[in-house]
Nucleic acid binder design. Structure first.
Length: 290
DNA sequence: AACTACTCCTGGAGGC
DNA sequence: TGCCTCCAGGAGTAGT
């Protein structure tokens, strides 16, 4: 479930708590969690020299030119603790709650650092993957995904978005944005938020957007992601947004009034994903008045 | 090449 | 309470 803002927030928090630390113990109780090429014991003795993010990948740069590339997928969670229950950093899917006792049945890996702090990787649905590899292999690995530009980078613009959308003109705009080659790091929540902000219906065909709409959409994506990274990520629990927060604006808020026009937010399916819109702000198409 | 459907898993919510 | 179905912040893969 973590999208770009969640992974970036986690990265920043971990940078404060594990950077420079040496890993003194590592184990996994779920064999498939650690994908090829290297297994968790290759972490032991290495220290954390850097933490990077690309799209939804969290990349640990380790000493002796190795790296650990994590993808939390839908329900991965990382918790870094000092002692029994002092949480230093936590991020990803907040289920079970970040303050739940650890380890629990969804805990699949554990790292211990030289300051006796412990990092747990938990994942209820077991979709997350971790790859340990030589540092030189990270870029070739990421390149296989053909990831689009980072939305907060200079490389992302109305122009680059236009080029990305031209890849599938007959695809609805929502799945086109979920394609990590179009723009990297967006997921279901932030696509809904961006389309609402840009006032574009998720089923509009990507190729049908005019230049003004693409420009509006690029600005909306940048604003939504930027706001989440600096002002706090979306909080969604069991598919519902936290009622007393103003963000996200529409995702997880079926039946609530649109923050812009007060029309009731509706939910339906687009490309198999639960999708929230304001039917007034995001018209399906322009229909001549009879 | 591009799109859809299915797949990997578990658990919470809601209907009956 | 229990059983059932649906749904879930992702993305790889097989089939059309």
């Amino acid at each position: 479930m973590p999208e770009l803002p969640e992974v970036e927030t986690l990265r920043r928090d971990l940078e404060r708590t594990v950077l420079g630390r040496q890993i003194v113990f590592a184990e996994s109780t779920l064999p498939k969690l650690f994908a090829e090429p290297l297994s968790p014991e290759h972490l032991i003795g290495r220290s954390v020299e850097g933490l990077r993010r690309r799209a939804k990948f969290l990349i640990w740069d380790l000493s002796d030119d190795h790296a650990m590339v994590m993808h939390l997928k839908l329900s991965g969670q990382i918790i870094h603790r000092s002692g029994e229950n002092v949480t230093l950093a936590a991020g990803g899917h907040p289920v079970p709650a970040f303050d739940a006792p650890l380890p629990h049945k969804a805990t699949h890996a554990k790292l211990i650092f030289d300051d006796d702090s412990t990092l747990f990787l938990t994942d209820i649905r077991q979709f997350a993957r971790v790859r340990i590899m030589p540092g030189a292999d990270v870029e070739p690995f990421l390149a296989t995904y053909r990831l689009g530009p980072e939305p907060l980078s200079r490389a992302f613009s109305a122009k680059s978005l236009s080029v990305g959308l031209a890849r599938h003109p007959r695809l609805p705009i929502k799945p086109a944005l979920l394609d990590q080659r179009t723009v990297s790091g967006l997921g279901n929540i932030y696509v809904d938020e961006s389309l609402w902000r840009a006032r574009i219906h998720p089923e509009r065909l990507a190729g049908s957007l005019d230049a003004a709409e693409i420009s509006r959409l690029a600005r909306a994506i940048r604003a939504v992601i930027g706001r989440a990274v600096t002002g706090g990520v979306a909080e969604i629990l069991n598919g519902k947004a936290t009622p007393d927060r103003d963000f996200p604006s529409v995702h997880g808020r079926e039946g609530s009034p649109c923050p812009r026009c007060r029309r009731e937010i509706i939910k339906f399916r687009v490309a198999g994903r639960g999708t929230y819109i304001c039917p007034r702000c995001q018209p399906a198409l322009i229909v001549p008045i009879a």
